[in-house]
Simulated scan of single mutants.
Amino acid sequence: MHLIDLRTLQQFVRVAESESISRAAQALHISASPLSRTILNLEARIGFALFDRVGRSLRLNNAGRELLVNARALLRDNERLMLDLQRRAGGTGGTVVLGHMPGALYNGIIPDTARRVQAAHPSIRFQFESALESEQLEELRRGRFDLAVQTQDVSDPALASRVFASERYVLLMPRDHPLATTAEISLNALVEAEWVVTPERAGPSLRSAFTAACRRQGFEPRVACVAGDIVSALALVAHGFGLCVAQESLVRFSGEQILVRALPLLEMQTVYRIVWRVDGLTPAATRFLEALAAPSKAATPRGQRKR
């Protein structure tokens, strides 16, 4: 199969629009003779005529009109492709794929940063993918993710990271729970309470952090039920299944049936790190990192209710 190069298509379109070899040659700043040979060679290559010759004029036949439609579309696509590549190279276009653990977007810092980048560079797009922290690092090394959000230190020399936020955890309970009217919640009350927890997972997780905090205080939590994720846990708390701990930014999703209290005894806090490949940072991802480091009103969790 013989492929048609873009230059031949450009010359064909010009001849079709001019209906004249000489006028098309003038517009293209080339001689008429090589342009005429280009059109004849094109017709010979595809096996049929594209023009009806009427004196010195060339009129497109049905096959020529069909090719003209497709040629214009291909040339437009090529122009858009070149523009997109130029934008990518300059950091003003392209797609940034960002991996994150469930819950990492609730404080609003990552979404607000992405929105600021898009406001400045509308051709940059973002794709957010939820994954466990170990899975994020693997996809980052493979090159499928441009960036990842982690809560643990990253020791891989091929990866770089920096802390961009920290967040404390709070205690959530049903509004009609016996502890709801208690001025100061004792350690013994936490020991006796029933808890809604998230699943145990390989690597860092809310469940492992919560269990470790309880063990530091000398007890194992009494698990009433296990929720598939933290948002499901909030629903179970609202329906009276027990207490749970959650990051403070989740308070705005907790609803009126849930009471939010401070959690001083367990002293849980998480630190968020943005991670990238040392030798594989795209210009668009660089724009995001620069915006993330810049001061913003989104630097603290939003939507928190007074307790």
Rank of each mutant, 00 (worst) to 15 (best):
A49N: 08
D77A: 14
G94C: 13
G47W: 11
L250D: 00
D84P: 00
Q118R: 14
V97L: 06
L83N: 07
A120C: 01
L259S: 11
L35A: 08
L171A: 09
I21D: 07
G91C: 12
D176F: 06
Q11T: 00
P199W: 05
I39L: 15
V13W: 05
T95G: 09
R76C: 00
R302Y: 08
E133W: 02
S155L: 14
I274M: 09
L236N: 04
A148D: 08
R287T: 06
M1A: 11
D5Q: 06
V54E: 14
G240V: 01
L81P: 05
N62A: 15
R222S: 13
D146E: 14
P264G: 03
V260R: 04
Q269D: 02
Q136I: 03
R141C: 05
E17Y: 02
S186I: 04
S31L: 13
V197T: 12
A224P: 11
T92C: 14
R215A: 15
A293S: 12
S123T: 12
H100D: 03
R277G: 13
A158T: 11
I30H: 03
P157T: 07
A16G: 10
F12H: 07
M82T: 11
I258C: 04
L132Y: 01
Q26C: 04
E138C: 02
T211A: 12
L234G: 07
V196Y: 02
D146A: 04
S57M: 08
A49T: 14
L50N: 09
V170C: 11
R59T: 10
L68I: 10
S208D: 06
V226N: 04
A120L: 10
D84E: 15
G99F: 03
V223T: 15
Q127K: 14
E184T: 14
R88V: 13
A227F: 03
I39V: 13
V15A: 04
L83K: 11
A285G: 10
E290K: 03
H121D: 10
A165F: 09
V69Q: 13
V278H: 08
N62K: 10
P199C: 10
C244F: 01
P301V: 03
D176L: 12
L28I: 10
